[in-house]
């Protein structure tokens, strides 16, 4: 499979995430769109790691594990995303407790 196909799909998913962040006002949905963007990047990293392995095998390196770095980066991105979600949802719950809404347009106190 040409790697450009994977890049196009990752770009599409990332752009959908950006559109979601820009158009929605519910804080939880904005957070979910950020998760979608992280997943698009993960997909592209895995595709690139397999591309590196393919290139290494074509170059004659049959036993090596070229490209496994990319998949470990994906693993660490997942670790950081899990930690981020726990803290972010705690912040959203606190915000809901204080202003009884998750609409981000009410969060404009710094403007005044």
């Amino acid at each position: 499979m040409p790697v450009i196909n994977y890049i196009y799909i990752a770009i599409a998913l990332f752009s959908i995430g950006v559109v979601g962040v820009l158009t929605r006002r519910n804080a939880i949905i904005i957070f979910m769109c950020i998760e979608l963007m992280l997943n698009a990047v993960n997909l592209m990293l895995v595709a690139f790691s397999k591309m590196h392995q393919n290139a290494a095998i074509l170059a004659g390196d049959l036993a090596g594990n070229a490209g496994s770095d990319g998949q470990l980066f994906v693993f660490f991105i997942m670790v950081v995303a899990a930690a981020e979600v726990s803290v972010g949802l705690a912040i959203i719950v606190m915000m809901y407790r204080n202003i009884h809404s998750v609409d981000i347009n009410f969060l404009n106190r710094l403007k005044h």
Binding site: P2, Y6, F48, N54
Partner: peptide, 16 residues
């Protein structure tokens, strides 16, 4: 460039 599909062993849990 081609991404290697359906073969290759770097994604297996032993290697990682």
């Amino acid at each position: 460039q081609f991404a290697m599909v359906n073969e290759g062993n770097i994604g297996l849990i032993r290697n990682l």
